[in-house]
């Protein structure tokens, strides 16, 4: 079995990192919302929410880094400059890699943005 998958011929890979962002966002939001609505029944402290968000954030960032590494490889590790506008299989692949890499960077930042409130906010309704 390969540890790292071969290059995938698909458009879907472009959306991997933003999807990770979306899942991370939903988990944070739904987790916190359910906690705040049901805290009496749960009997847990808010620190649980904050550490939970911390853990899923680390997982999400690692996943985005992984996807970013695959994208970087697809881009040819930066050996070719954009605009990747030749009608070749090679340039098409480089383009997909580069666009995916950009999206990984954006998603990475956006995940950190989402997680930041948990670093500051200490209660459901302070």
């Amino acid at each position: 079995m390969r540890l790292i998958p071969k290059e995938v011929e698909s458009l879907w890979t472009l959306f991997t990192a933003p999807t990770i962002w979306a899942v991370h966002f939903l988990v944070c939001y739904v987790g916190a919302a359910v906690f705040c609505a049901k805290r009496n029944a749960l009997g847990l402290d808010f620190i649980t929410v904050r550490s939970g968000i911390g853990i899923v954030t680390v997982i999400a960032l690692l996943a985005i880094l992984g996807s970013g590494w695959l994208a970087w490889r697809q881009w040819g590790f930066g050996t070719h400059e954009p605009p990747h506008d030749e009608p070749s299989h090679h340039d098409r692949n480089r383009f997909q890699g580069f666009a995916t890499l950009l999206l990984c960077a954006l998603s990475f930042v956006a995940v950190i943005f989402t997680a930041m409130p948990a670093a500051i906010i200490t209660e459901c309704n302070p």
Partner: peptide, 18 residues
Amino acid sequence: LPSISLAFFSAASEAVAI
């Protein structure tokens, strides 16, 4: 809504500016 919920959406609203 809980402040933390607002904060998530505030953060994403700032991020979309990028």
